[in-house]
Design a protein around this nucleic acid. Structure first.
Lengths: 340, 340
DNA sequence: ATGAAAGCGCTAACAG
DNA sequence: CTGTTAGCGCTTTCAT
């Protein structure tokens, strides 16, 4: 019923091997033969069986993307960039989320679903010390990490420390001296990005001799709601900051909302700056340090592909790739009110 | 090097066939034999080769998700719901975008990448009359559509006409009589949702004898920027609407922004209502008709799975599944100003 | 309940 | 440049 390579071979008057070569564009095939085979294959509406092909060749032609979230902006945007490259390369993209969106729902370890199934793995911002990431790396297959740094595993990131410096410096240059920080969790160690951004912030605090009052720090857990609560906390102090650096745009959105709810005007009463260049940041008039998230995905996928193409013995260290960020100044930041 | 079913068989002192049966939980295997095989397989760290298994059995164990966009809120949220079900079922999820994010970049027809490769297909809101959708449906494999209706193909949607009625009625009940409409494209025919939402709007206009001035209609192309421009157009008329129904939250976000830019206050000067229940809608205090987007994905995936489980001869019509929506009233809507 | 045998549809040497 | 010969690693009758 389903037509196989032998049907094509018979119809074209050649052997299955020749059909295989002709269709895959291999050399050492007479161009007229190739043309005839292609024509016959098209007429017969033949498509190779990926499974047979993979079984025989040992290559799976697929790469897996592992991500903690699918629908959050950063993750879906990275995924989009990844997908464009994978698809252009003619490979299959297996999507695997390790989040448990449904509380209490057990998610199998990703590694077991990867073995013998994909040629390479792309990991989007999994917590560096998570069991799941460790498992994946221990698989020992070609891997590229996005947005995180773990040992010397090939990865693509922004310079998080520098991004934080750009954001904080922008505030300092506007004359602010009490600059708040809204970070992730209180430990600040869940992600490499978190500690690096904090380091960037601290380096500017030192550089400009800004206030380093510990009360200027709050945790927003990288969510909108968390950012709002963090800003609430900052605002209800005796001596609130005149400007706040948020480690992500989403937390900054929450901070903006907190201001509005408190009857304050972002940019006039308190300046807010984020990191991301989130789609909605323009809409909310948020100053931010934009990162090319779609490109992060694209570049990581390309890097993985080239890593896979290379012979396994020579390893020219795909290494760490840094992509640039840039400060986007909007209405949420302005010079400190000299006197109120 | 890689260990196969024969290694397990040898180590367990049984035949490969028995290992196969034991590991897949088939009946007619002595439970002690099964236990031994499982123990040996685990000790040897054996994983079946999906390709060999698929080739031999004829089942691919994968389902494809085809979507025009990956990073837009609606699509990534649906995808997230789909993924949770597919993964729980132990199947592979192949992600395929048919969008050309990179202008001029040719995207191969999806159908050719599906044949002999997946057992079923999930399609997220592709334009009903698109070539790509037609191709996919003609494949004749188990399929479920999300957010669109095409013939009698199994699908999962909200009641778009009803959602539009809820939104428009809410405005009418607040006393508004000049209610604007921001839709997708001028034809309003790209998606089934579009024409149905327009029908719902019109039915309420008729029901409440509201103004049906054609100047109250604008096109926002389902984007934030488009929504803003549409609202601009509506606002610069001699007799602007006092309330506007936007066919999507993202267009509503744009409309809100337009109001703010014009010095108007949403909810006080002009009421705005959207459809979606977008993550940011709460943050922007937007009244909207919420749809359970994550569940749309979940339900469609489950429906597809059960469709695939059934024998092909009896077809009890998986049919059309409607999920309920609900009006969420927030600050962007309020009673019409009786006199200004 | 278990084993033997025959493929699933293709690719990869190896000849020629 | 093309054909032949072996499998890739599993599943599935068919026996036993």
């Amino acid at each position: 019923m389903t037509i196989t390579i032998r049907d094509v071979a018979a119809a074209a008057g050649v052997s299955p091997a020749t059909v295989s070569r002709a269709l895959r564009g291999m050399p050492n095939v007479d161009e007229r033969t190739r043309a005839r085979v292609q024509r016959v294959a098209a007429k017969l509406d033949y498509v190779v069986s990926p499974n047979a092909s993979r079984l025989a060749s040992g290559r799976t032609g697929s790469i897996a993307v592992i991500t903690p979230y699918i629908s959050r902006w950063y993750f879906s945007t990275v995924l989009s960039g990844v997908e464009s490259v994978i698809q252009a390369a003619g490979m299959d993209l297996l999507l695997l989320s390790v989040d448990d969106h449904i509380p209490g729902h057990f998610r199998a370890a990703p590694a077991s679903r990867l073995r013998r199934r994909v040629d390479g793995v792309l990991v989007i911002a999994l917590p560096p010390k998570s069991e799941q990431l460790r498992e994946v790396i221990e698989l020992g297959m070609p891997t590229a990490l996005i947005g995180i740094t773990v040992g010397d595993a090939p990865n693509v990131t922004i310079d998080d420390e520098d991004a934080a410096r750009q954001a904080t410096r922008h505030l300092a240059n506007l004359g602010h001296t009490r600059i708040g920080l809204i970070g992730g969790d209180p430990d600040g160690t869940a992600f490499t990005a978190e500690s690096e951004r904090e380091r960037g912030y601290r380096s500017v605090v030192a550089e400009y001799s800004l206030s380093d009052d510990p009360l200027l720090h709050a945790s927003g857990y990288f969510t909108i709601a968390g950012g709002e609560q963090a800003m609430n906390a900052l605002l209800t102090q005796r001596n609130p900051p005149t400007a706040v650096f948020c480690m992500s745009d989403e937390m900054a959105f929450g901070a903006l909302r907190s201001l509005t709810r408190h009857g304050l005007t972002p940019g006039r009463d308190v300046s807010i700056v984020g990191i991301d260049g989130h789609d909605m940041s323009e809409h909310l008039d948020l100053t931010t340090v934009g990162q090319p998230v779609y490109d992060l995905g694209r570049i990581a996928a390309e890097s993985l592909l080239s890593q896979m193409a290379k012979p396994t013995d020579v390893e020219p260290v795909p290494g760490h790739i840094r992509v640039p960020t840039r400060l986007i100044v909007r209405g949420s930041t302005s010079p400190v009110a000299s006197s109120r």
